[in-house]
């Protein structure tokens, strides 16, 4: 038996916002430690890794590790039945091929129960090493979102360059070229507004911009996000959900043919 209750049920809605344009179906790995997911996009260029710790839930019970396959388009439809302030309980009986989602209003005056069929999904699991990155930049997630949206109307690829002075996003297209630099800035009162650059070595990599726009759909999960870069390795774009877990996106850089 698997059962887990989230007081802030809309966390799952926010997570789905960031996932559904990248992955249409995925296996959720349920274990006593929590819920995780790893999936590649259809073109196998990007990878998403989600981790929600068991203690992020109000009641968490997982009797045995199990993978449950879900169509994320259908899951997003089901989640429309949940109010933004509703609690959300997920239940999956080991002997059944479905999952039950229960949405309850905080005042306990509305109760919705939806059952959704599970599916068998063949998925390839990749081992992601704990890299030491050449550069890690933390910045407000809204700012990152705005930058990649703005640049995507100018070009298709973005060159990300980190030096001790800051992080520069560059693109070019028919319109012209654009460079946006964010310098390290820790003068604001709120830490969530800070931009910090942790640099081992300067690094410059080029990526398909549309993926960054998709990653930025997780902006509502966290005020801060981080970009971790190493020469000739996939970038890691992370949205941490406090001590509840994280969603991490990996994207292969474009390399010289």
């Amino acid at each position: 038996m698997f059962e887990a209750k989230l007081i802030q049920g809309n966390l799952i809605k926010k997570i789905m916002e960031g996932l559904k344009d990248l992955v249409t179906e995925a296996n959720f790995d349920l274990s006593p430690g929590g819920v995780s997911l790893q999936a590649m996009d259809s073109s196998h260029v990007a990878l998403v890794a989600l981790m929600l710790r068991g203690d992020a839930f109000e009641n968490y019970r997982c009797d045995r590790p199990r993978s449950i396959g879900m169509n994320l388009v259908n899951l997003s439809k089901v989640l429309k039945c949940a109010g933004n302030d509703d609690t959300m309980t997920l239940k999956a009986d080991d002997t059944q091929n479905n999952i039950t989602l229960v949405f309850e209003s905080q005042a306990e005056d509305k109760y919705a129960e939806v059952q959704m069929e599970l599916m068998d999904i063949d998925s390839e699991h990749l081992g992601i090493p704990d890299n030491t990155y050449d550069a890690i930049v933390k910045m407000p997630s809204a700012q990152f979102s705005q930058i990649v949206k703005d640049l995507s109307s100018i070009g298709d690829t973005v060159t990300v360059s980190v030096t001790k002075d800051g992080i520069t996003f560059s693109t070019s297209g028919d319109v012209g070229t654009a460079h946006i630099t964010c310098k390290q800035n820790t003068s604001m009162e709120k830490e969530a507004d800070h931009t910090t650059v942790n640099l081992e070595h300067p690094v410059t990599l080029t990526f398909a911009l549309r993926y960054f726009v998709t990653f930025a759909k997780s902006t509502s999960l966290s005020h801060q996000m981080s970009i971790s870069l190493s020469k000739e390795l996939p970038v890691m774009v992370e949205y941490a959900m406090g001590d509840m877990g994280h969603i991490r996106f990996y994207l292969a850089p474009k390399i010289d043919d």
């Binding site: 590649m40 260029v45 390839e124 990749l126 080029t206 398909a208 390795l233 990996y250 292969a252």
Partner: peptide
Amino acid sequence: PKGQPPISSFFARA
């Protein structure tokens, strides 16, 4: 020109 390698070429299968 820059090519786009698959993500699996960077991470080994688990």
